[in-house]
C-alpha cells in the first residue's frame, strides 16, 4: 500500500503524504528534473504537459502548461525559494485560469522510509476561501478522469 493521505489542517493548510518504493535521491530528482516531471504530473488520462520549465535553484522559475490536445488547457507558474537535495523543496506556485490564483506556498519533504521514501507535501494558502477554491479546482480536474474512463467504458 502506498497510503496516500490528503488532509486539511486548520484554516489554510493541506497536507499530502505518500510512500514511494524508490529512495529519496530518485524521488527528489523526479520532482525537480523537467524531463521526468513532464512524464507524470499530467492529471487525467489524455492530458499532456507540452511546456515544463523547472529551474531548480533558489529564485529559479517554474512553469507548467497542460493541454488536453483539443484546445483546452491551463498553466501554472511559480518560483523556487529553497532547495536542500534530496530532503526538501520550498516553492510558491499559482494557477492561471487564466487569472492568477493567490500564491500557494508548498514545502515538500522527502525522508528515507525503509528502502523507500516518505514524501510530505505541506501546502499553505493565504486564507480559507482560497483553500476551498484550490480543492475545488483540483477536484474538477480529477473528476474529468473519472468521466473520461466512464465514457471509454460506455463506448
Amino acid at each position: 500500500m502506498t497510503g496516500l493521505k490528503l488532509e486539511v489542517e486548520g484554516d489554510t493548510v493541506v497536507v499530502v503524504t505518500r510512500h514511494f518504493a524508490a529512495p529519496p535521491e530518485k524521488v527528489f530528482r523526479a520532482h525537480t528534473d523537467p524531463a521526468i516531471v513532464q512524464r507524470w504530473m499530467l492529471g487525467p488520462d489524455g492530458w499532456t504537459m507540452p511546456v515544463c520549465l523547472l529551474e531548480a535553484r533558489p529564485g529559479g522559475r517554474i512553469r507548467y502548461e497542460w493541454s488536453d490536445g483539443q484546445g483546452n488547457g491551463f498553466y501554472l507558474t511559480g518560483e523556487f525559494l529553497e532547495l536542500d537535495p534530496p530532503h526538501r523543496i520550498l516553492h510558491v506556485e499559482r494557477m492561471h485560469l487564466p487569472d492568477p490564483t493567490p500564491d500557494n506556498r508548498i514545502e515538500t519533504r522527502f525522508e528515507a522510509d525503509g528502502a523507500g521514501t516518505k514524501m510530505t507535501m505541506r501546502m499553505t494558502l493565504p486564507d480559507a476561501q482560497t483553500r476551498a477554491a484550490m480543492l475545488e479546482t483540483g477536484m474538477e480536474h480529477g473528476m474529468e478522469a473519472s468521466y473520461q474512463r466512464l465514457e471509454a467504458l460506455e463506448a
Binding site: 507524470w40 499530467l42 483540483g138 480536474h141 480529477g142
Partner: peptide, 13 residues
C-alpha cells in the same frame, strides 16, 4: 476524489 486524482499522477511516477 482529490486523493484519487493525485494518486493517478503518483502511480505514473
Amino acid at each position: 476524489l482529490l486523493r484519487r486524482a493525485l494518486e493517478t499522477n503518483y502511480q505514473r511516477l
